[in-house]
Computed example of a mutant assay.
Amino acid sequence: MKTNYDYRIRKGLGIALLMLIVAAPSFAQSNNPGPKLGIKGGANLSQFFVNQPTVEDENMKVGLHFGVFTKIPINNFVSFQPELLYTNVGSKISYGGSTLESALGIEEGEVRFNLNYIQLPLAFTLNVGPLNIHAGPYLSYLASANVKNLRNSDLSTINATELDRNDFHTLDYGLLAGVGFDVQNVTIGARYNYGLREVGKSGIAGNLTNDSKNSVAQLYIGFGF
Rank of each mutant, 00 (worst) to 15 (best):
F168A: 03
F113I: 07
G97L: 11
V111I: 15
A135Q: 01
N146M: 00
G136N: 04
G97Q: 10
V111S: 06
N149P: 02
N132M: 06
S94A: 12
V89Q: 12
H169E: 05
G96E: 14
S156N: 08
N116H: 11
R151S: 13
G129L: 09
G97K: 13
L155F: 01
V111R: 09
V128T: 09
Y141H: 04
D172P: 01
Y138V: 00
L100M: 13
I118D: 00
G109K: 13
L155P: 04
S140I: 00
S156G: 02
D172H: 04
V128I: 15
N149V: 02
S144P: 02
K92A: 15
S140K: 03
L104G: 07
F124W: 07
L155C: 01
S91V: 13
G96M: 11
L100F: 11
P137Q: 04
L104H: 11
N114D: 15
E101V: 10
V111P: 08
F113S: 06
S153V: 05
E110M: 12
L171D: 03
S102Y: 10
Y141D: 00
F124I: 14
L120D: 05
L131C: 04
P130D: 02
E107N: 15
S91A: 14
E108C: 07
I93A: 08
I93W: 07
H169A: 03
I158A: 07
I118E: 00
E101R: 13
F168C: 04
A143Q: 04
I93G: 10
L126K: 05
V89A: 08
L171I: 13
L150R: 06
L120C: 08
L100R: 09
N159P: 00
E108I: 05
Y117N: 03
R151K: 14
E108H: 13
E101S: 14
G129D: 06
S144E: 04
